[in-house]
Computed example of a mutant assay.
Amino acid sequence: MATTTPTPAPTVTWNIDPAHSSAEFKVKHMMISNVKGSFNGITGTLTEDPADPTRSQVEASIDISTLATGDAQRDAHLKSPDFFHHEQHPTMTFKSTKVEKKGEGEYSVIGDLTVHGATKPVTFAVEGPSAPGKDPWGNTRIGLSATTKINRKDFGLSWNAALETGGILVGEDVQITLEIQFIKA
């Protein structure tokens, strides 16, 4: 008796649309309020398994030189060797290693985040992807939102200054929020 191996369902490749995607962060400043910033220039792909989304994979890269906080002096300091050292580490990257379904349209995407030359596992809470839709030019698009929190010191971003009143100038925990739109390849 011959046995047949089931044919795996085809995957769908989606490319990140950098013009309609953003990466934002916030970190405590002087232990009293949050300072926000963003990155543009996000690139990457989602290889989606529509039959079993937990077998999907994502890879993304962000250009450090696109960092913007609304203050040119702060931006220059963040890009300097004190923090990101963008000349030596021009990108940060993420590559998923596991996807877990948490609920309807909710996933945990676990993977390796590389920042400033250091790679650490992180987990993103993901909402989406949305249902596919056509844009006016005939492209099929989907979108998702993702959040995580990291400790910047885990990635070698340890510069800080002590405050005269006690405490530190820059908090260690960084909240990251992604809004990503994909175009079907």
Rank of each mutant, 00 (worst) to 15 (best):
T66L: 12
T66R: 13
T66E: 11
L67D: 07
L67N: 09
A68Y: 15
T69L: 15
D71F: 13
D71L: 13
A72M: 03
A72Y: 01
A72V: 10
A72T: 10
D75T: 06
L78N: 11
L78T: 13
K79N: 03
K79D: 00
P81L: 11
F83E: 07
F83K: 05
F84W: 13
F84I: 09
H85P: 07
H85Q: 15
H85G: 14
H86R: 07
H86A: 13
H86C: 07
E87R: 14
E87F: 12
E87T: 15
Q88R: 15
Q88N: 15
H89F: 15
H89M: 05
P90N: 10
P90A: 09
T91R: 01
T91Y: 00
T91F: 00
T91L: 00
M92F: 04
T93K: 06
T93Q: 04
F94R: 02
K95T: 08
T97K: 09
V99A: 03
E100F: 00
K102L: 09
G103K: 02
G103Q: 03
G105D: 01
G105F: 00
E106C: 03
Y107R: 06
S108R: 07
V109I: 14
V109A: 05
V109S: 05
I110F: 05
G111Q: 03
D112G: 04
D112T: 01
V115F: 00
V115L: 03
G117S: 03
G117L: 00
G117Q: 00
T119K: 04
T119E: 01
K120Y: 00
P121Y: 01
P121D: 00
P121K: 07
V122R: 00
F124M: 10
F124L: 10
F124G: 01
A125L: 12
A125Q: 14
V126N: 01
E127M: 08
E127V: 13
G128L: 07
G128C: 02
P129E: 02
S130V: 06
P132H: 07
P132A: 08
G133S: 14
G133P: 05
D135I: 08
P136S: 07
P136N: 03
N139G: 15
N139S: 15
T140N: 13
R141F: 01
I142F: 06
G143N: 07
G143Y: 06
S145D: 12
A146W: 05
T147W: 04
K149I: 08
K149T: 14
R152A: 10
R152Y: 08
K153Y: 03
K153T: 08
F155M: 11
F155K: 10
G156W: 01
G156H: 02
L157Q: 12
L157G: 10
W159L: 05
W159H: 12
N160T: 05
A161C: 01
A161Q: 14
L163T: 07
E164L: 15
E164R: 14
E164C: 09
T165F: 13
T165A: 15
G166W: 05
G167C: 06
V170R: 11
V170G: 09
G171N: 11
G171A: 11
E172P: 13
D173H: 08
D173F: 06
D173S: 13
V174D: 09
V174E: 08
Q175M: 10
I176W: 13
I176N: 12
I176P: 02
I176S: 11
T177N: 12
T177Y: 07
T177K: 13
L178R: 03
E179K: 14
E179I: 12
